[in-house]
């Protein structure tokens, strides 16, 4: 990942600041940077969103395609995640350089959505055992300035909110075969309920405290961070320790609690913003 070199003096400065709940850019320990969300940015997709968080910029496009349901769950559709680390973000990502980070991020996204309530997968079913909607969630990193997980998860939530899946009907023909009919009206679409879609909160352990939405400088001062994905009700759908350090059990409990609090508070303004933007477009 894009990294910065931080000198010892800078480290001490950042550490002492965080100890006193004041970060280099003037934020408190549990504050996010300025965030901008834009939906419906790519017309060729079924749903898209772009988010900028500080200098981090992420673009998410969702395409719905008809596929075959998985044999274990014949009455559900599914989501596919793919994260592409563009060489635009940092030269390190050129060629296969971004692949490792990309698989790490997409694997985490699968875990975040690996539960029954995040997205109503049953609504993606067209005909049981034969056809279902597959949502391809493609994430493109345009700029990296720390805190990729949070930015990606918020962008995905916004893009899922924006997703319009065409309505289809199944009609049986004379020989008993089934036919899928697409609605003639392009505005006749199905929307997803994104209320339960979780958001990821990354907590970076710096010194004895932890910070939310760490910049690259702050990340360079920390040895380990904890990512927690939280729904609007405060349910935790995924946790993971990332980084090469270890954490005290007590601080893990503290960080989970803080993550839940921050994550829960994140959902309400986000949903309000998305609904506002939606009404403005209509």
């Amino acid at each position: 990942m894009a990294t910065v070199q931080v000198s010892e003096a800078e480290k001490v400065y950042i550490l002492h600041g965080i100890r006193d709940d004041l970060r280099v850019d003037g934020r408190g320990c549990e504050d996010y940077r300025h965030m901008e969300i834009e939906t419906d940015v790519v017309s060729n997709t079924d749903g898209s969103a772009k988010i900028t968080l500080g200098h981090t910029a992420v673009l998410v496009g969702i395409k719905a395609e008809i596929g075959k349901p998985r044999p274990m769950v014949p009455d559900e559709g599914y989501l596919e995640f793919f994260v592409d680390c563009s060489a635009n973000a940092t030269p390190e990502f050129e060629g296969r350089g971004g692949e490792e980070l990309g698989t790490e991020l997409s694997n985490t996204l699968y875990k975040v959505f690996n539960n029954k309530r995040s997205v109503d997968l049953k609504s993606l079913c067209i005909s049981e055992g034969e056809h279902c909607w597959v949502l391809y969630v493609d994430v493109l990193l345009l700029q990296c300035d720390g805190n990729l997980y949070d930015a990606i998860s918020i962008a995905i939530k916004a893009a899922l909110f924006n997703t319009k899946i065409p309505r289809v009907q199944i009609s049986a023909d004379d020989e008993g075969g089934k036919e899928i009919e697409l609605s003639d009206d392009p505005y006749d679409c199905m929307r997803l309920n994104v209320e339960n879609v979780p958001c990821i909160v990354t907590l970076c352990k710096v010194g004895h405290r932890h910070v939310v939405d760490a910049t690259l400088q702050e990340k360079a001062c920390s040895v380990a961070s904890l990512i927690i994905s939280v729904t609007h009700k405060g349910t935790v759908t995924c946790t993971r320790k990332v980084g090469g350090g270890s954490l005290d059990p007590e601080s893990i409990f503290e960080m989970t609690e803080a993550g839940k609090r921050v994550g829960k508070a994140l959902h309400t303004p986000l949903m309000k913003l998305l609904q506002e933007e939606e009404s403005r477009g209509a």
């Binding site: 875990k111 975040v112 539960n115 954490l247 005290d248």
Partner: peptide, 10 residues
């Protein structure tokens, strides 16, 4: 110390 933590589900 906890060096690895991973969870999924709800």
């Amino acid at each position: 110390q906890i060096s690895g933590l991973q969870s999924d589900g709800e």
